[in-house]
Write a protein that binds this DNA or RNA. Structure first.
Length: 569
RNA sequence: GCUCCCAUAGCUCAGCGGAUAGAGCGUCGCCCUCCGGAGGCGAAGGCGCAGGUUCGAUUCCUGCUGGGAGCACCA
């Protein structure tokens, strides 16, 4: 289906060139012509402010420019009228006969409605969640998952071939601590008196008690004399199963689980280090070479480390790549990982991170640039924190201390769809205040019901129509009225929303569109009856056809948000 | 102290340099009860402050105020 604003912009561009050729407008380069729905319905369906923008370059009043453009504007078949409005807008009205044909077009596209050309033949990689398997998915992590998955869905709709990736680290101290913690719980489960550490090295989460009991059931006391390693392996497996299961509940999935360790095994990190060294971005020293006295004092002397000269790219400080112990920091494999991503040839890479990873994300970009690669293909969506509030008070989250709000808990108290919508409809740059009390209360504070109910209402009509033997087969959509067309106009905006969401990587736009679509729908549902006794059969068929199209649009919008399109509620 | 994010209606939030700044909830009033009332219609109510750029600023820039996050040889 066509993206109406693009089509209009092309036609207006032609008109401007024609006006220039005829001498009605002076010569100038064609500007970007922005077409958007006006704020008020009586101003038409789409509006162009191009004449206002051209006033200076053309040296004419905007109103005059608009008139001269329209003089050379031939109406395409889908436009019924174009008129000039002060102070210089060009307002366009869609053709009603054409709009009616779009009902059939929408039904024909079905679940692929508004799959765009913009990403055709392009590959995108979206990375999200990427939590190490040390604990269940928290509400905070959920946000990146929702943003990442929604972004992936939007990019798919925009025509991209999308891969979803999860980057994880199953080595390192935290995993060893996890293994040790499980080992202690295991010994407890065997009935031994165990003194539990009180410091951060011990994971207090109750799930480890459960894991330990299961382990006793499976293996008895066979592991009683083992060190942390088998426990770490067991905990990791259980944790990943749990994480995947939790995410699957809100329809968040991954295609690839990328193990950081593979970058060590293939030697990729050392190749990167060597490359950086050859390019002169690396030095060995006890202290960063270009830091002020205060920083140098803070860093202290722990022996010779390998530094990345990231200040050359505008960083506030150079970063350690290899510790004085000879062990790489997280930064080195992270740079290697993103080099790996770019080497895989994606046209677009998107990384969804919490805002606490801002500095790290920047350093990675500097690293990629230092390798001589184009970092513009790396896009980072930083999301602000989710603050969970209960009883009007903030609930603190800390995986290691065992105090946390898990995604599971949140879903159990609300619903998967509510979690998807409430988190997915927020702009990532804003904090989310997730009120657990409000989410528990199933009132219509929650727009998810309002949107899904539109789909349910459509489904309800078809159930009733089937029972009464009414069909939309061979319906004459030309019988549809102004109310129905108001909805069709709104439905056709979906393509523009997908385009904008994909271009700006702002998937939450879909959520607001879906709400607007529902707001357009419900009043129409109220007045446009199908099976009412006073509705003549031909009109019944046409209206039924209309609701079939409406259902397609709602299902498409809901699916784009990773939500269910229920038949009943 | 430095870096980044945010500030829009009583509350939670949209708003891609353009016309009269939107929605949900809450409040107040009204309607509908033969396809599911988690419904429909209407009202009151707002761009933190001060400059600047622009024909035009909620949007871009600077400063201020007030929130939040990050500033490891952790990951």
């Amino acid at each position: 289906m066509k993206l109406i604003p693009h089509e209009i912009a092309a036609h207006l561009g032609d008109a401007i060139r024609a006006a220039q050729a005829a001498g009605d407008l002076p010569a100038f380069d064609l500007p970007v012509i922005d077409i958007k729905p006006p704020k008020h319905a009586n101003q038409g369906d789409y509006a162009a402010s191009v004449a206002l923008a051209l006033a200076k370059t053309a040296g004419l009043p905007p109103l005059e420019i608009a008139n001269r453009i329209l003089k050379h504007f031939t109406l395409p078949d889908f436009i019924a009228a174009a008129e000039v409005a002060p102070p210089g807008y060009i307002n366009l009205r869609l053709d009603e006969a054409w709009l009616k044909t779009q009902v059939e077009a929408i039904i024909a596209e079905g679940d692929a409605l508004f799959t765009l050309e913009m990403g055709k033949g392009k590959r995108a990689l979206v990375e999200y969640v990427s939590a190490n398997p040390t604990g269940p998915i928290t509400v905070g992590r959920t946000r990146g998952g929702v943003i990442g998955d929604s972004t992936a869905r939007v990019l798919e709709a925009a025509g991209y071939t999308v891969e979803r990736e999860y980057y994880f680290n199953n080595a390192g101290r935290q995993m060893r601590n996890l293994g040790n913690s499980l080992r202690l719980r295991y010994l407890q489960a065997l009935g031994r008196e165990i003194e539990l550490p009180t410091d951060d090295s011990f994971y207090q989460g109750e799930y480890l008690i459960e894991f330990a009991e299961d382990l006793v059931k499976e293996r008895g006391d066979a592991l009683a004399n083992e060190d942390w390693q088998p426990f770490k392996e067991y905990a990791e497996k259980r944790m990943f199963d749990w994480i995947k299961t939790s995410l699957a509940r809100i329809q968040v999935k991954h295609d690839v689980f990328f193990n950081e360790n593979s970058l060590y095994e293939t030697g990729a990190i050392w190749n990167v280090l060597e490359e950086l060294e050859q390019r002169g971005y690396v030095y060995k020293a006890a202290l960063p070479e270009n830091a002020d006295e205060q920083t140098r004092a803070e860093v202290g002397g722990k022996g010779e480390a390998v530094w990345f000269r990231s200040t050359q790219f505008g960083d506030t400080a150079d970063r350690v790549l290899v510790k004085s112990s000879g062990e790489p920091t997280y930064t080195l494999p992270d740079i290697a990982y993103h080099k790996n991503k770019l080497d895989r040839g994606y046209d677009l890479c998107v990384n969804c991170l919490g805002s606490d990873h801002l500095v790290q994300a920047q350093v990675v970009k500097y690293g990629v640039r230092a390798l001589g690669m184009d970092d513009s293909r790396l896009n980072v969506i930083l999301n602000q924190m989710v603050k969970t509030v209960r009883d009007g008070k903030e609930v603190r989250m800390s995986t290691r201390r065992g105090v946390f709000d898990t995604l599971d808990e949140l879903i159990d108290q609300t619903s998967a769809d509510a979690v998807r919508y409430l988190i997915g409809s927020r702009s990532p740059t804003n904090h989310v205040l997730f009120d657990l009390d409000l989410a528990v209360a199933q009132t219509n504070d929650n727009p998810v019901y309002y949107i899904q109910n539109a789909h349910v209402r459509c489904a309800g009509i078809f159930r009733e129509a089937a029972a009464r033997g009414v069909s939309d087969e061979g319906a004459d959509v030309s019988l549809l009225g102004a109310d129905e067309l108001r909805f069709v106009r709104k439905a056709l905006e979906l393509g523009e929303v997908i385009e904008a969401a994909a271009r700006t990587l702002e998937a939450h736009r879909v959520a607001f569109y879906a709400l607007e679509l529902a707001q357009t729908f419900h009043p129409i549902y109220d007045s446009v009856r199908v099976l009412h006794s006073e509705v003549p059969p031909p009109l019944q068929g046409a209206r039924l056809r209309f609701y079939r199209a409406a259902q397609v649009v709602f299902r498409r919008a809901l699916t784009l948000m990773g939500m269910n399109a229920p038949e009943y509620m």
